[in-house]
Design a protein around this nucleic acid. Structure first.
Length: 424
RNA sequence: GGAGAGAUGGGUGAGCGGUUUAAACCGGCAGUCUUGAAAACUGUUGUAGGGUAACCUACCGGGGGUUCGAAUCCCUCUCUCUCCGCCA
């Protein structure tokens, strides 16, 4: 969420920027500023009474110590009225703060200056592309049929043991999963990220910290007996490691990577978009999370984009990089690049990574701060994250694009990890 | 699952209703000394909010209560640790 200070000091700028996300903020922003003024006045009055009560209690203590009992009793009488005032003021203050928070959380993050205008996916701007679009003959199969032919992914079996969207990987298919995870992690570590293996169940506080709760509760699987949630992405446990932390500016950059399975309930989708590996309830992903100094977060965003791109180049997949337009961006992001790979038999671009700078929007919720060398005051850090990469759609593209009469060719870079060069 | 103990600043840890404005030690930072370092010594060192400022307010796991006054007493919830049982 944005800070009240940000909103109060840049009223017009906030409204103007949010218009890029097609969010009409003027009324909400003015309400927030009004509430904030009221809140401050209420605080001033409340604290004056608290100070008086404290003073009173101290002097009663002093009087009792000196044995001046009657004066002490008299002083006790005067506190009753003050306490009544305090009670009413502090419930007024509670109400004001609740309303204010309720209003503030409705404001999305401000889009960066470079975010393109636009309403929907069609308005996203392609910043780069790479790789060769494969030319397949008429016998080319979609990945779900290839999976069956080579007996490497069993969707039916997953339905039997769990349900739709929980595939079983088998033989060379399972080995391919393990190879991709190891490859992605090794590449991230080589690029300077520290590898983590976090819990994949998180508590309620962590869900709040990264913003899944309370609004998107329905997207996560909930283990009710212990009130834990299955993570939808490694971003949740990894980012929450830094909840309520104050860093030094010399601690930046903090670069972390983690492989985890990810769980998404994703109710409401149907049709060809969810065929095969296109959309699953459980999938594997290697995630990057960076904590950065505000002055350098966009340089770090660029570095993350280059890292993800290098993975796709090594996997020899045709890809394009999109800068998301205001209308297609997430609530929390200031600037997002999506990576799509071409899935030849489906004749579709599939999103395999989304790399975002959240600036201080997420850090404010997390209370993740840092201190400039020699300064007492704390400031909010910037947080960034991105997938590097999500496996299922990579696998879909690898299977479809590399199919041939001899089987499915494994790209050179993966062979040390798979131990085979063809799926047969 | 059973029994017990506990939760205090970056860490260890005092504190048993009113100079707690949270001791002490360790760590951190700055300085003195030193060719440099170490040691020693001196100073400094929580977070958030309000106020032009002096200064004030809140926070000792969360919430509620008793009291003129609560880190301290009471209730409640959560979490952690130890032992036993079970288990990879």
């Amino acid at each position: 969420m944005l800070t009240i200070k940000q909103i109060e000091e840049n009223r017009d700028y906030v409204v103007e920027r949010l218009a890029v996300k097609h969010f009409q903020a003027a009324q909400l922003v003015d309400q927030i500023i009004g509430q904030s003024v009221a809140r401050r006045q209420c605080i001033t009055r409340t604290e004056a009474i608290q100070a008086e009560l404290n003073q009173n209690a101290r002097s009663i203590g002093q009087l009792l110590k000196e044995g001046r009992k009657e004066e002490a009793e008299a002083a006790k009488q005067t506190t009753a009225a003050l306490k009544a005032q305090l009670t009413s003021l502090s419930s007024e203050l509670d109400a004001l703060e609740m309303q204010l928070k309720h209003l503030v959380v409705q404001l999305p993050n401000l889009p960066h200056q470079s975010v393109p205008q636009g309403r929907a996916a069609a308005d996203n701007v392609e910043v780069r592309s790479g790789g060769q679009l494969p030319v397949l003959d008429g016998t080319a199969l979609p990945h779900w049929e290839l999976a069956q032919r080579y007996d490497i992914i069993d969707f039916e079996l997953g339905v039997k043991i769990t349900g739709a969207g929980f595939p079983v990987y088998k033989g060379q298919g399972a080995r391919l999963q393990r190879a991709l995870i190891a490859f992605f992690l090794d590449e991230a570590v080589r690029a300077g990220y520290t590898e983590y293996m976090p819990p994949i169940l998180v508590n309620e506080d962590s869900g709040f910290g990264t913003g899944q709760l309370p609004d998107k509760e329905g997207q996560m699987y909930h283990a009710t007996a212990d009130n834990f949630y299955l993570i939808p992405t490694a971003e949740v446990p990894v980012t929450n490691m830094y909840r309520d932390v104050i860093l030094r500016s010399s601690d930046f950059p903090v670069r972390m990577t983690a492989y985890t399975p990810c769980f998404r309930r994703e109710a409401g989708s149907y049709g060809k978009d969810v065929r095969g590996l296109n959309r699953l309830h459980q999938f594997d992903k290697v995630e990057l999370v960076c904590l950065e100094h505000p002055d350098r977060s966009y340089a770090t965003l660029d570095a993350m984009v280059e890292h993800v791109e290098s993975l796709l180049v090594k996997l020899q997949l045709p890809y394009r990089i999109l800068r998301l337009c205001g209308g297609d961006m997430s609530f929390t992001s200031a600037l997002t690049y999506d990576f799509e790979v071409y899935s030849a038999a489906q004749n579709m671009w599939l999103e395999v990574s989304s790399v975002s700078n959240f600036e201080s929007f997420q850090a404010n919720r997390l209370k993740l701060r840092y201190r400039e060398e020699g300064e007492k005051q704390t400031r909010l850090a910037h947080t960034l994250n991105g997938s590097a990469l999500a496996l299922p759609r990579i696998v879909a593209a690898l299977l479809e694009n590399n199919q041939g009469p001899e089987g499915i060719r494994i790209p050179e870079a993966l062979r040390p990890y798979t131990g085979f060069d063809t799926i047969q």
